[in-house]
Nucleic acid binder design. Structure first.
Lengths: 327, 327
DNA sequence: ACTCGGCCTGTTAACGGTAACATGTTATCC
DNA sequence: GGATAACATGTTACCGTTAACAGGCCGAGT
């Protein structure tokens, strides 16, 4: 910057102002500075700026995994909506584990992010106090936690799943099995499981069988393998409620291999409205959770908060039942 | 840090050393510093460190999209393999556009990354000179460019696709159509297309029909829509060579809807060895490009380079034909 | 007792920007 | 013409950490 200043014949301060489009520099100076900077191949040092101003220009984001079309959609919505803001995203994956989330947040905080975007409302106590102590804007997404840390953009996993169960009950299904990850890791998955069990009880259906498809994240392969393991025992059920569309697709494919008629013998439902649910034949009944919209809404909240205005504490996005051909 | 130093009764320098595990601090001092730091809720400022040492601790990574299971796999392999190194990833998506890549890299460079990881070997001239001028380690992945900027970890898209065409020819297919993105955006896709056309010619097959499924990134829906648009004209072909497994799956599903026998009437092949190809019924013939391995290999190269050793300039990962049931 | 080297800790100055304030320069007004 | 405001630029000090160097202390060797 000093070099640029010297070349233009002004002080570094003026160069600084010119490059940041401070309106107090004359148009003539600004354009000369820009030209010389480009000519000299000068690259602005955001690290130094972040240091001096104590504003990093980072928003820290944690996701369970980027390897999930839904979370990837949220990320895309968020990053596209934030593109113009001058903020950069610092992304971390928690692998669906709260301890990993804690470690990750600890690490991310050392970069002085100006806001924190977390997936879900469950965090370790240490994470909560860490964040509270920092006093920076927090947004939890993909859920509607009862005791949020700050802002919330999400939907009720329980309600969405209840709607799905009601849909199955209305079409005469009574013997449901829930296919999802093992206890523990995937908390939104656990919420969905609990909701399926509770709703079935409330509607007077048979007790729901819970089928463990393996540790989170459960994939298409897990769904297929679970159905394969069930084998003949599948006939005990008239509907498979899967924790996600990927699992549902795996289950559906395996059913086809086993010549099980879907939806004749067995209904299958997914969750998330992944592409695969809309394209597969038959189309999978699912719930559209507005993954992308969550991202753009989070971006809007951030924008508002950064502008110093106050944003609504809770934004509920729609979780809409999308009937397909598998139920 | 000053506060911590005061509380412990040492100088800030000692605290700095203790927190970084500099071996010249006594074990006793180190543990006291750690304890006090934790107690006071002190959070280390990586920004200041990055500024002072002129080492950001960042590796900048650009991907066409995270919304693609293959690139997401590469990202996961890379970030998991780098987890212990103390480096953080600064991720950006180019949306398959070189101009966007240039802008992104310009932005990322202001953060002083210590290395740059790019997807593909095609870049604008400005990008190339920008990077060259910076003189930092560069790794291009997912391709084997003829004129690399630095290190390369990838495979030959052309060779992989040629193997697939040879496989189709060997099983008697002669009238191929290639289904991919419109000209321009997706460069690896374009390489694949060119290879299909060239290989078919070399093997004496009919001239390949190129079917435009829409702008990159092409998804399952695009694949399905392309087949739907083709309709009866599909009978002109005995094989659909798709640019990716997602497109192939969309095409396959639409064929089922249209009661077209796959592979009886029509073979379908994909690319990338996505889960959907392995799980769908029938399984889709594809090419496993070791997406995750690319990530871990890139991490290994980075580690070597950061350690000051010299890493091989070109690492070719396997692109292995995975015969399925659609060909 | 004195020197020397190893171990541990402290002091100083700097990394590249920018906030806050000071200053100079040019229009504007009575 | 002189005061005043509006604009454009410069000066100074500092953001939190650490490299480089400078000690101080202690035990071993002579």
């Amino acid at each position: 910057m000093r070099d640029v200043a010297q070349a233009v014949g002004v002080s570094p301060m003026t160069v600084s102002r010119a490059l940041r489009d401070d309106k107090t520099v004359s148009e003539r100076t600004r354009s000369r500075v820009r030209a010389v900077a480009a000519e000299l191949g000068y690259v602005y040092d955001t690290t130094a700026q972040a240091f001096r101003t104590q504003k990093s220009g980072f928003v820290a984001v944690t996701l369970p995994s980027v390897n999930n079309a839904n979370f990837a959609d949220t990320f895309r919505g968020l990053s596209e909506a934030m593109a113009g803001s001058g903020m950069q995203i610092l992304l971390g994956a928690t692998n669906y584990r709260l301890e990993k989330e804690e470690e990750l947040i600890r690490q991310l905080l050392t970069r002085n992010p100006e806001a924190l975007v977390l997936t879900g409302g469950n965090h370790t106590d240490a994470t909560r106090s860490l964040i509270r102590a920092r006093g920076l804007p927090v947004i939890e997404m993909w859920d509607l936690p009862p005791d949020p840390l700050g802002h919330v953009v999400g939907f009720s996993n329980a309600d969405a799943m209840a709607a799905l169960v009601a849909h199955l009950a209305a079409s005469g299904r009574r013997r449901l099995a829930f296919v999802g990850a093992s206890e523990g890791a995937d908390l939104r998955g656990a919420e969905r499981r609990a909701s399926v069990v509770a709703t079935a009880r409330k509607l007077g259906l048979d007790e729901v069988a819970v089928i463990d498809a393996g540790p989170a994240p459960v994939s298409m392969r897990h769904g297929a393998a679970a159905v394969e393991r069930l084998g003949a025992r599948l006939s005990a059920f008239d509907a498979l409620v899967c924790v996600s569309d990927t699992v549902a697709f795996g289950a559906l494919s395996e059913c086809r291999r086993m010549r099980i008629d879907v939806p004749g013998q067995l209904a299958i439902t997914g969750f998330g409205h992944f592409d695969v649910a809309a394209v597969s034949d038959p189309r999978i009944t699912t719930v559209d959770v507005s993954a992308r919209l969550i991202g753009t809404e989070v971006a809007r909240v951030l924008e508002t908060v950064f502008a110093g205005a106050s944003a609504p504490l809770e934004i509920e996005v729609a979780a809409r039942l999308v009937p397909g051909e598998t139920s």
